[in-house]
Design a protein around this nucleic acid. Sequence first.
DNA 1: AAAATAGTGTCTATAAGACATTATGTC
DNA 2: GACATAATGTCTTATAGACACTATTTT
Lengths: 229, 229
Amino acid sequence: MTRRAPTHRKPHTTQVGIDVVLFSIIDDALCVLLINRQWEPYAHVASLPGAFLRADETTQAAAQHVLRTKAGITRPVYMEQLYTFDTRGRDPRGDFPTVAYMTLVPHTAVPLGNSATTQEPHWVPVVRLPRLAFDHELIVRTAVARLRAKLEYTNIVYSLIPATFTLTRLQRVYEIILGHALDKRNFRKKYLSLGLIRATRGMERGGKQRPARLYRFVSRTPAQLKKFF
Amino acid sequence: MTRRAPTHRKPHTTQVGIDVVLFSIIDDALCVLLINRQWEPYAHVASLPGAFLRADETTQAAAQHVLRTKAGITRPVYMEQLYTFDTRGRDPRGDFPTVAYMTLVPHTAVPLGNSATTQEPHWVPVVRLPRLAFDHELIVRTAVARLRAKLEYTNIVYSLIPATFTLTRLQRVYEIILGHALDKRNFRKKYLSLGLIRATRGMERGGKQRPARLYRFVSRTPAQLKKFF
DNA sequence: AAAATAGTGTCTATAAGACATTATGTC
DNA sequence: GACATAATGTCTTATAGACACTATTTT
């Protein structure tokens, strides 16, 4: 930021929006958390949970605040800034930029149920998006694209699955997000060679079949990989 | 953006910064355009050209306006939104977010020289950055990382070189930005196989040696590639 | 033993990387 | 003809992708 010449014009200020795209895998579908708007504009239309940036708050803190108050998420999850949207005419109240964040949580981490502050949050598969308020469809599509891309060269799936998981489950998550089937043997060969996960001593029982070995991520913090999928 | 409940609190508004990282290749170095600040804070310290977002202006339009007024760039160049920075304490005048854009121009497109509005713009190799105002060093580093990454899977180099160019020159640009040497035969084999560029009938004369064939990009618009470098 | 999913290896095709010589201009 | 850069191809290695059967548990 460069300071302007000292003119006498009052500096322009604007509201800044914060929107959060919260992804989770539910019932073998990539879902996004939506709420129903209560007031105009777009009353009763689905939208992303969001807020206005408040004084002395960073956009990241604001996004975390949205997660807490709108989705009841308190545990740390993966979160990254997605993009700052400011298409003209996105909001009938006037133009202002909105900083969108993308977050990932295992579905077990999200308490659902309506409360006074939660405005009927609900999960919707991204392939069945309803009409969304503002430019939120664009935001969701951008987030899906980012998620798919990042899946290929980072380890961020760790944030979508429980601490321990079977390789079949991990592969399923990849298939759900990427939208196409993967070869079982190639997936295992490649994933194990990355060194990101390690076998535990546990087995997943409960099915009517041979139990599967449980794995876990060596590290549950974001990492970039040279080569991936 | 979700509208808040109709409280009686006045909505918070803030200034929004716009900063532009303008890259060009000059004298075989990746350079960034800096200006010298005239006023506090950080008077006489180098900084990125920037501005405050004005009323009824998109961030992209604001970035383009900065390009025009601070760097004299009128021709279309490659520009993309980089990231929105809002680290605490970046600006002693208070915290507000700043939307950074990254743009690329061939050095021939940039008229240099000081004018009333240009505050001594000058090109500085990114490997020899001086002290920068605010969090501009972080912004430049982020931009360099983005540029390097994008070089590998997009065709955006077209915006850094003249309309026609030799393969040696193109390779040089890649080497300069990536920071390491590339094999001549492998580079040509791979680049030509991508189908992004086409040989012209022209040759580059002027040296004391065998003239080199001139090529040009088939399309000078951004494109994503499946595989690249 | 039937059902259901777990788990495993080879072969082929493609891409990446190392590497040196000949060609064609200018002076 | 000396100089300077242009232009070109092969071989090796690594990675990606296709592909099918055996193993282990539950009921």
